[in-house]
Design a protein around this nucleic acid. Sequence first.
DNA 1: TCCGCTCTTTTGACACGATCAAAACTGGAC
DNA 2: GTCCAGTTTTGATCGTGTCAAAAGAGCGGA
Lengths: 143, 143
Amino acid sequence: MPQTALTETDAAIRGAGLRVTDTRRGVYDALSALPHARADDVYGRVRAAVPATSMQSVYNALGDFVDAGLARRIEPAGHPGLFELRVNDNHHHLVCSGCGRVEDVDCIAGHAPCLHPPETHGFAVQAAEVTFWGVCPDCAAAA
Amino acid sequence: MPQTALTETDAAIRGAGLRVTDTRRGVYDALSALPHARADDVYGRVRAAVPATSMQSVYNALGDFVDAGLARRIEPAGHPGLFELRVNDNHHHLVCSGCGRVEDVDCIAGHAPCLHPPETHGFAVQAAEVTFWGVCPDCAAAA
DNA sequence: TCCGCTCTTTTGACACGATCAAAACTGGAC
DNA sequence: GTCCAGTTTTGATCGTGTCAAAAGAGCGGA
């Protein structure tokens, strides 16, 4: 039988200190293909490759990836959480208030926190999360 | 029987084009007392003043206030939605990643969008939402 | 002051995204 | 090849929020 090739996917998962399983390979590949995927988009894709997978396993894998620093979870107000693999740059997001479509926007500073609040109220500020809201071309055309 | 005084609360609700009811008075007063209140915090406070109120009525009132521009809803990732009455300035928020405590942070620009993305992907950008994440003094002391 | 239209509240069911728990299974170090 | 800690499976459950329809009430006009 063909020995599984050590792909970049495998290397990334192993590199994060996680065991390589079919579910995780599928989740990682789904995130590569869908840069801002909801948990059930990922589930749908993973099922195509690994039919026995459960939704719970996908949530587990996504949570593990986030904990391991492999993936990041974003959560635009009013929308379910989205997952992305871009974690090493402090980039931001542009969200369509019509359809929820998300695009990446590079951060000018490049590292967190890229902005500093004028008053900290005693908080130790760690990050500034910027979300741009607007209307995407498709939604603008539909309106 | 004592005639209800025309309070600032009443004036604010009427001014937004909404009928004045006990529930709405209660919700408005709760938001005044709790600057970043969750729906059930509001519910708890309103029940003290108007015991017959239902959770659904509170959601209705909050939604009506938001639609009418009287209140604003914010939704820090991983936390339930919060409501606030500050709507006329484009201020931002500082959120504790430990306990979820929220503090207001003034916007330097004062009007939306206070930031502009380097690339718009064809979107008509309407607002920039900035959330600062950090650790509040209480959580820092506990850790 | 009273009427009546329209808006608001009530009641109860229900949807969605996500999480918890425990038992069965398996990757990979040795 | 063995074995154990890490993973997946199965199925229940939770919190937040929404939908719908009937009952109730604010307030403008007569």
